[in-house]
Design a protein around this nucleic acid. Structure first.
Length: 496
RNA sequence: GGGCCGUUAGCUCAAUAGGUAGAGCAGCUGACUCUUAAUCAGGAGGUUCGGGGUUCGAUUCCCUGACGGCCCA
């Protein structure tokens, strides 16, 4: 703290002087009965004349965000997460000591004020302050009041500053909380039980991804941060909880980008006796519920300048059809592995030796179809090869009863009727194991206990995962996942 | 992992065809009792991301590293 800039030096000096004069810099125990939002909600519509008659009085607290000082009167704006309210000090309304303190306040200080509500000449709701307590002294200057904090790196590293000065960022995270709340309520109301399953797993399963590895000293064993809760949630189906969900963090040891954070929030839910087709309707309803909560009930929204309409029913098509109709492949190029390979090569795609025809189709899909799926679209009938936990399709055993949901060119959900035949599951794990041995680091590991659970009998069921971060991005018009994660992962700063 | 771009005052941004950096806001001093990006006057604030090189001289050019952004894999 020896390389302080001038502003901080002066501010610290001023703070010390205040303290010496008997003004505590960081007191506590001062009750704040009303929040700024309460005042705004209660009196937002009340006229100037009515206020002059009633003179309602309030005690509120907040951070000083701006100061407009005149000789014997001072205007400030007070702000908290819920709103912004102007406060007004007049010299002859306050004791001498109090007015002297007011003059020493800085933008960034947190204060409690009591006074009466009125409207200024410009009709702005304002508290004429009668009493003031400094609650917390700021010693680090806030970013510029007009441009705010723009530097993306600083905004992420010091999210607290971002939240102080950029109200739209607060708005995004308030919305995120509302979305999570709505999802929980939606599931709970439909009889789903919220559960918590291990985040540290001996066998990381339920998805194709690289895990983080850690070590348990006392047990002397490796553990992995979960890449998905799936296999544990399905164990609960075996254990007779027929509707369960978990809404929490997953961890994947992959690169960071505007679409990926190493830890991200996933909703997974499982419903016994349902099929993946039931979950399509369920998903449409869930999105409508969320829209009702955070999009003024509107089923249409704008994302990155594009209109997205969430009105059900959403379009559904098979993966194969999408490759033909949207990807522009010929039917033969989809069905004949040799022709598929040709098409892939012309797109610059190649295959690892452990990858087959099914994997190739999804690679072509990612490139040619996915970005074009702006409106909500269910893509169904994924190849068995890329769906090691999904039930086989009754008509075509090389396909699965599965869908992925795409909106704005991004995968939003993945769902399938669950494979509950322990023999088939064991074979699938064996195939995954083989791919792993051939170099596929993302292939599933054998989970003997999961097979054992299936042998006890898992009811026919369908399950789904929804990426909460992407859901929030959609509803907050955010281009990057870092815009919806409070503290996204960054490399450490060099020094403070 | 690759390519391109960026990093200058607390914040938002300028500038230098290589000659040691400037504005607004914030902050400081002063004036001002209805302002709201308040206004006016004065003063203050810099390791130009780090390291190395070329040069009489580098913030600028070259190399290298760190961090970040965008795109690609």
């Amino acid at each position: 703290m020896d390389d302080l800039n001038v502003v901080m030096r002066e501010r610290l000096q001023k703070a010390l002087e205040m303290e010496e004069a008997g003004v505590p810099l960081y007191p506590n125990g001062y009750a704040v009965p009303e929040r700024l939002r309460d005042v705004l909600v209660e009196y937002g519509q009340t006229t100037k004349e009515q206020l002059e008659k009633d003179e309602p009085s309030f005690t509120v607290a907040g951070r000083i965000m701006s100061v407009r000082s005149f000789g014997k009167s001072i205007f400030m704006h007070l702000e908290d997460a819920g709103g912004k309210l102007q406060i007004y000090f007049q010299k002859n309304q306050l004791s001498e000591e109090c007015y002297a303190l007011v003059k020493k306040l800085d933008a960034g200080d947190i204060v409690r004020v009591s006074g009466t509500l009125f409207r200024t000449r410009t009709d702005e709701l304002t508290i004429l302050v009668k009493d003031l307590v400094l609650l917390t002294k700021n010693v680090r200057p806030l970013p510029e009041k007009y441009h705010g904090l723009k530097d993306v790196e600083t905004r992420h590293r010091q999210r607290y500053v971002d939240l102080i000065v950029n109200p739209e960022v607060r708005e995004t995270f308030l919305k995120r909380a509302k979305i999570v709340q709505t999802v929980r309520k939606f599931l709970t109301e439909r009889g789903f039980l919220e559960v918590e399953t291990p985040m540290m797993q001996a066998v990381p399963g339920g998805a194709t991804a690289k895990p983080f590895k850690t070590f348990h000293n006392a047990l002397g064993m490796d553990l992995f941060l979960r890449i998905a809760p799936e296999l544990y949630l399905k164990r609960l189906l075996v254990g007779s909880f027929d509707r369960v969900f978990e809404l929490n963090r997953n961890f994947r040891n992959e690169g960071v980008s505007t679409q990926h954070n190493p830890e991200f929030t996933m909703l997974e839910f499982y419903q016994a006796y349902a099929t993946y087709e039931d979950l399509m309707r369920f998903t449409e309803e869930l999105f409508a519920e969320v829209a009702g909560a955070v999009n003024n009930g509107e089923l249409a929204l704008d994302y990155m300048g594009e209109r997205v309409d969430l009105t059900p029913p959403w379009r559904a098509m098979t993966l194969a059809d999408s490759l033909v109709e949207i990807g522009g492949l010929s039917r033969e190029a989809v069905e004949d592995p040799a022709k598929t390979m040709e098409a892939a090569k012309s797109l610059g795609l190649s295959l690892e030796k452990f990858e087959g025809h099914g994997k190739l189709l999804t690679k072509i899909f990612d490139l040619t179809v996915e970005p074009k799926l702006i409106q909500p679209t269910f893509i169904t009938h994924y190849p068995l090869e890329v769906s090691p936990l999904s039930r086989r399709n009754a008509e075509n055993p090389d396909l699965t009863d599965r869908f992925e949901l795409f909106i704005t060119g991004k995968e939003m959900a993945n769902a399938f009727s669950e494979l509950n035949d322990p023999r088939d599951q064991k074979d699938r794990f064996a195939k995954q194991l083989q791919a792993r041995q051939e170099g596929d680091e993302e292939a599933h590991m054998m989970d003997e206990d999961y097979i054992r659970a299936l042998e006890y009998g898992m009811p026919p069921a369908a399950g789904e995962g929804i990426g909460i971060d992407r859901l929030v991005m959609l509803f907050t018009d955010s281009p990057s996942i870092r815009d919806v994660i409070l503290f996204p992962h960054l490399k450490p700063e060099k020094k403070m």
